[in-house]
Design a binder for these strands. Structure first.
Length: 168
DNA sequence: TTAGTGATATCC
DNA sequence: GATATCACTAAA
């Protein structure tokens, strides 16, 4: 098992999103217990030019994290009850991120975070730290693309982009 | 299909 | 200050 480092995340978000499929998301609980889930679905949100990206209207208190350097964790509360997990990619000051949408045995971004006890406390943390990280088992994976979901507010053009990546 | 839930952004 | 909106889920 190889732990993914800064260099992995310091690349264009489309590439990172694709490469994260099939990797292992590892969570260390305060109790010390380790939980591992295999990532089965991701989505890329590619900066201010992408109207589906939270940062497309510019910097706000909430999107500030997206402007941080690669490997920063971006977590926010959706619909008042679901924590969604993202990882910042690319250069600092370039607000792009990858949403971890699902793992094997944990379909849906909200369920995934619930299963791993992930909450807003981890927001702004590092994905290379000791609370949450991602490992590569070296196994080859087949990835298929699809349209992103839940972004009806974005431009038609952006809604049609195949920026969702799934384990085949 | 629809209700539930609360932070955030945007508008007074 | 108020309200509209949301990268969702569970129950029916």
């Amino acid at each position: 098992m190889k732990r993914l480092k800064y260099e992995f995340y310091h690349r264009p978000c489309l590439q990172v999103a694709q490469d994260l499929v099939g990797k292992w998301l590892v969570r260390r609980l305060p109790s010390g217990e380790l939980l591992r889930l295999r990532i089965s679905e991701t989505e890329a949100y590619c900066g201010e030019a992408d109207t589906a990206c939270h940062a497309h209207k510019g910097r706000t208190k909430r999107t500030e994290v997206l402007y941080a350097d690669a490997g920063t964790i971006y977590i926010y509360l959706c619909y008042g009850m679901h924590w969604l997990l993202n990882v910042v990619t690319g250069d600092a000051e370039d607000p792009q991120a990858v949403l971890i949408r699902a793992c094997v045995d944990a379909p849906g971004p909200g369920r995934l975070t619930k299963r791993l006890f992930i909450t807003g406390e981890l927001n702004r943390g590092s994905i290379c730290g000791d609370e949450l990280w991602i490992e590569d088992d070296g196994q080859a994976t087949e990835v298929e693309t699809d349209k992103r979901v839940g972004i009806g507010y974005a431009s038609q053009e952006d809604q049609d982009r195949l920026w969702r990546f799934k384990l085949k």
